[in-house]
Design a protein around this nucleic acid. Structure first.
Lengths: 250, 250
DNA sequence: CCTGGGGCCTGACGCAGCGTCGGGGTCAAG
DNA sequence: CTTGACCCCGACGCTGCGTCAGGCCCCAGG
């Protein structure tokens, strides 16, 4: 098949296919003598995946890496299925939010800004969610986390968030008061942190917790998160987690 | 509230707010003496709408016109609700498509490219759908059309599409054979076209049909659609529709 | 009082993902 | 052999921000 046909079939423009060719995302497996692009069935299959991932909001570069992985087709289908269901959920939540506001209006109540932005705020932007999905999607922990948070009501969620804030605040307090990161007090906080995660999200053993702690320093977004609470907090929390893991023999 | 707070609340960056200010999409209702942006509650409300429409895929410029309309808040909520439900449907369809493919795989069957791209192909790009929504969303005809197409199975849809293709092909044939646009034959085709619409989408009277015919010439996308089938077809169909409407006294 | 670090300001440039010409070959039907 | 549809490639344009850079503002702590 040549570009025009493929474009019509897939519902994209010829220019788009040219673009995908140029950036190497989808190169036709052949060319005619005259230089016409020739797309084979396998190319169509790839295009199909590209379009699905694109629709889900992945930047093209990531789509490329997603496809470059040696993953088999079934693997892609499973992933796409997960991502689509996440999106479904998210959209459902937005519908619910709008309905809530409609109801509030009809009853003459008006929501606070916080309530209104709820659905935007406490939601990881789709890209980040996708990245997390990509990184952890296959793990047991992720599945557990998805399942549990799905079941949470808003109140649950607020409670969980409050719990988290509390421990973070106490970590910050410890840091400020000059306690060492490998002190008993700090380690106890780390332990509490670990148990919180286990209770609210997924079974988090010492080793896993230690890995998480490392990530707090390696992923600058986590670092930034803690640094905003108090300077040096990322280091402190991470160190406390390592110490706690060590004392429990991990 | 100042930018940083608003940004944190709404889950966007400060830069985004600057941008919206610059392009006039969302200008803070005040500034401090030092030039700091000050956002009032009403600004937050507007931002909320902006973000929802943006999420739904509208370009910012259209978001601006959507918001510039004197429409009351309830009106926005209804519209957002409709758009979100459309998206929900679309996502559901995609989930179904992926599930279908998973099943096919597990049974060792493989789908044709057409089947695979179905969900992309016969779907008006979200932007266009949104535009149509914008233009016709309040009309009875649109509501009917939405309702009926929603209820259609895939086979229904293919049948409807085949019907349409058939009439179009016969229009093209008539044009090719030199029949006049106001001839009986052409008018009969137009009548068939009208009845098809009435049967499959919405009650389409002569006047409405005439309006539709005019749009075939005014909206270049419709023009392009017919011109692709046969050069001059847009004119021909439009004229035949006018003639048919006239003979029925519209 | 003054000083430092965070937040705010305004340009200005960069980048993804195409849309949209423009100039020029190619292919099949008549 | 022509004509109209289709293909090629290159280049510029546009949206919606991200990301510095240079400089002012604000207030808490010394």
């Amino acid at each position: 098949m040549n570009v025009g046909e493929v474009a019509a079939l897939a519902g994209v423009t010829v220019r788009t296919l040219h673009h995908y060719d140029r950036i190497g995302l989808l190169q036709p497996s052949g060319r005619t003598a005259a230089g016409y692009r020739q797309y084979a069935p396998a190319d169509l299959e790839r295009l199909h995946r590209v379009l699905l991932y694109r629709e889900l909001g992945f930047p093209l570069e990531e789509v490329a890496t997603l496809l470059s992985g040696d993953a088999d087709p079934a693997e892609h289908l499973r992933r796409q299925h997960r991502l689509l269901r996440d999106r479904l959920e998210r959209t459902t939540a937005m519908v619910a939010a709008v309905e809530k506001e409609m109801e509030a209006r009809s009853m003459g109540i008006s929501l606070t800004p916080e309530e209104r932005f709820e659905v935007f705020g406490d939601w990881l932007p789709e890209e980040y969610a996708a990245e997390a999905e990509e990184k952890w999607g296959e793990t047991e922990a992720w599945a557990q986390s998805q399942q549990r948070t799905r079941a949470m009501t808003k109140d649950d969620w607020l409670r969980v968030k409050a719990e988290g804030d509390d421990v973070e605040a106490r970590f910050a307090g410890a840091l400020r008061s000059g306690v060492a990161a490998d002190s008993e007090q700090a380690m106890d906080l780390a332990e509490e942190h670990r148990q919180q995660i286990s209770r609210n999200f997924y079974d988090c053993g010492y080793e896993m917790h230690a890995g998480l702690g490392r990530m707090y320093l390696e992923d600058e977004r986590f670092t930034a998160y803690y640094e905003r609470i108090a300077p040096g907090l990322a280091q402190f929390v991470s160190a406390a987690i390592q110490a706690n893991a060590a004392r429990h023999g991990a």
